[in-house]
């Protein structure tokens, strides 16, 4: 398919779509997330991992990724960052916090225009 590329890791190949998201969500592992981040020159610190896991859990529960507003609320409540804001999320992933958390988390690219 046009635009697809392969990600090689631990002797296996995984297929990414033209948008950089895993085509098969069942292929995801934390090792894949780390590798995707390494290729982007990014280190997955604890807070980035927190957001990735939160987005994955939200997707599992509600069938879609969270609003940024929801992620901020949860970050204040659950990650101990009382001053968390949308700026906090953008510092983690400047190219779009929820979208990037979905990509690193093996989830489809969010569809919504909000």
């Amino acid at each position: 398919m046009t635009g697809e590329r392969k990600l090689a890791l631990a002797g296996r190949e995984f297929v990414l779509g033209s948008d950089g998201h895993l085509l098969d969500p069942d292929d995801w592992s934390e090792a894949i997330a780390e590798e995707l981040a390494r290729l982007d020159g990014l280190e997955l610190c604890d807070l980035r991992w927190w957001l990735i896991r939160f987005v994955r859990a939200h997707y599992d529960e509600y069938g879609m990724p969270p609003l940024m507003r929801t992620a901020v609320m949860a970050m204040r409540r659950d990650a101990g960052l009382e001053d968390a804001s949308s700026q906090t999320l953008y510092r983690l992933f400047p190219d779009g916090p929820i979208r990037e958390a979905c990509r690193f988390g093996g989830l489809p690219r969010p569809e919504s225009c909000i």
Binding site: E61, L67, R69, M73
Partner: peptide, 11 residues
């Protein structure tokens, strides 16, 4: 279940 996020997070 998608609607549940609205009540769960008080949106």
């Amino acid at each position: 279940r998608g609607w549940a996020q609205i009540t769960d997070f008080g949106l």
